[in-house]
């Protein structure tokens, strides 16, 4: 069972408290009516499906209830970091400096 750090609770807790919520950093367009069919299709359905570090959303559903973002390695299943919703995706350099 994974351990996940909730950036709002600032606590590392068992996976059972959390729910996965899809790929991160896919913002809903401000005015969907301006999008072409292809652009709207991409927003709805097209995901990166990376092998490696994946930015994804989680919700601390059985805890504080907040949605947040995480970087997780899809090969090792290990969390690289978690960060609050709205914050930019951490750059690899920032991560190294933090270590």
């Amino acid at each position: 069972m994974l351990l996940i750090n909730c950036p709002y609770c600032d606590d590392t807790l068992p996976e059972l408290e959390f729910a996965y919520a899809g790929e991160a950093h896919i913002a809903r367009p401000a005015d969907p009516s301006k999008l072409s069919d292809e652009e709207w299709r991409d927003f709805l359905f097209i995901r990166t499906n990376v092998k490696g570090v994946h930015a994804e959303r989680w919700r601390h559903i059985n805890g504080c209830g907040r949605f947040f973002n995480a970087l997780r390695d899809t090969v090792s299943d290990q969390f690289v970091t978690t960060y609050k919703a709205g914050e930019p995706r951490p750059e690899p350099k920032t991560l190294e400096a933090a270590e």
């Binding site: 729910a19 919520a21 913002a27 809903r28 959303r57 919700r59 559903i61 209830g65 907040r66 949605f67 919703a85 709205g86």
Partner: peptide
């Protein structure tokens, strides 16, 4: 409720 929370927290905070 989850869907409402999702939009409220992440799209329209």
């Amino acid at each position: 409720l989850n869907m409402m929370e999702d939009y409220l927290q992440t799209e329209w905070p």
